[in-house]
């Protein structure tokens, strides 16, 4: 029964992936591919954030601290050192992982909103640093990169889809393994987890590293997709807000939930674009309705009602 179920699940996920991957063959709309590309990167941010928030129980207001570090490290590497894209992306990711490591210390010591404040401060300090070193970073105007991933819309679509699929698979494996259970346990009651003989530090470090790895990859790839790195795309609090909303309305502690939430947020925003300046408001109202009437997100609508 269990095994059959697991096969089912894997099969279905694979099917969804294949169906999505065939999209460029059936549509001539590069615009749709462009929209989904952004949505997929947002999905990676959301999944990485949910690993810390949903599973490890950390109130993290600073996903854009990790994303921004990676984006700017990769951007500066390309602009000033002139190194190729595929060298700069790992460098950016490494910067994000260092940033993630820096957050572990406070995370072990501080709880709930107090840790949330530290992450918020980290984002604000990063923003100030970008302004102060505007000679290098371009400040509020942003940094123009020499290179981009690819000119082709289809190519960009596959890069984003590929990253999203890899992230989903790796995170799925991690959270379903004993490791994920310990992580979740330490998020809910770290003292009891320690008492059971598990090293909370080790697991927290692991969670932060994984989250930083994927947000870093996505951050670096996002700037090479856009061709510019600017505070408005990878640092400001508004980006964090998008990530949080995508995760929550999709469904916490659910990989596919984060993906659904991100795709909904971006696609709904595009559909409602004719509303003009009220389109963001309309999306927020929809999201609030979901939250009030189905607090466990889209994923709960598909069967997991009242669970957990």
């Amino acid at each position: 029964m269990n095994i059959a179920y697991a096969y089912w699940r894997t099969g279905l996920a694979l099917l969804a992936l294949i169906v999505t991957a065939c999209l460029p063959a059936v549509t001539s709309s590069y615009y749709l591919l462009g929209v989904l590309t952004t949505a997929f990167y947002l999905a990676v941010y959301a999944m990485s954030w949910d690993l810390l928030f949903g599973y490890a129980g950390e109130v993290n207001f600073g996903p854009t601290f990790l994303i921004g570090l990676s984006a700017y490290a990769a951007g500066l590497c390309n602009t000033f050192l002139g190194w190729p894209v595929w060298v700069c992306i790992p460098i950016g990711t490494a910067a994000a992982m260092l940033g993630g490591l820096a957050l572990v210390g406070p995370a072990l010591r501080l709880k709930g909103p107090y840790f949330g404040l530290v992450t918020l401060v980290a984002v604000l300090l990063l923003g100030h640093a970008i302004t102060i070193f505007s000679g290098y970073t371009g400040g509020e105007i942003g940094l123009a990169l020499r290179d981009i991933l690819t000119l082709s819309s289809t190519g960009n679509f596959y890069y984003a889809l590929g990253l999203m699929a890899i992230t989903a698979v790796v995170l799925r494996i991690v959270v379903r393994s004993p490791l994920g259970l310990i992580l979740e346990a330490s998020g809910q009651d770290s003292v009891a987890t320690e008492a059971l003989g598990f090293s909370v530090i080790k697991f927290k470090v692991l969670a932060f590293m994984l989250s930083a790895l994927f947000s870093g990859l996505a951050g670096a790839m996002t700037v090479f997709y856009f061709g510019t790195a600017s505070p408005g795309t990878v640092v400001v609090v508004a980006v964090t807000v998008q990530i949080i909303i995508a995760t929550i309305i999709g469904g916490r502690r659910s990989i596919i939930g984060s993906i659904l939430g991100a795709v909904f947020l971006v696609v709904a925003g595009e559909f409602l674009r004719p509303l003009g300046e009220l389109s963001t408001t309309a999306v927020s109202i929809l999201a609030l309705l979901v939250l009030v009437f189905a607090p466990n997100g889209f994923i709960s609508v598909f069967g997991r009602r009242g669970a957990r």
Partner: peptide, 29 residues
């Protein structure tokens, strides 16, 4: 949200906090 029975009591603060965030976005818009 406080009266909703669809979530565990200890998770309520998280939902309220996202809900107020959404309310802020709506108001701002």
């Amino acid at each position: 949200l406080s009266r909703s029975r669809q979530m565990a009591a200890d998770e309520l603060p998280v939902f309220l906090f996202v809900a107020t965030l959404l309310f802020a976005l709506i108001l701002q818009g």
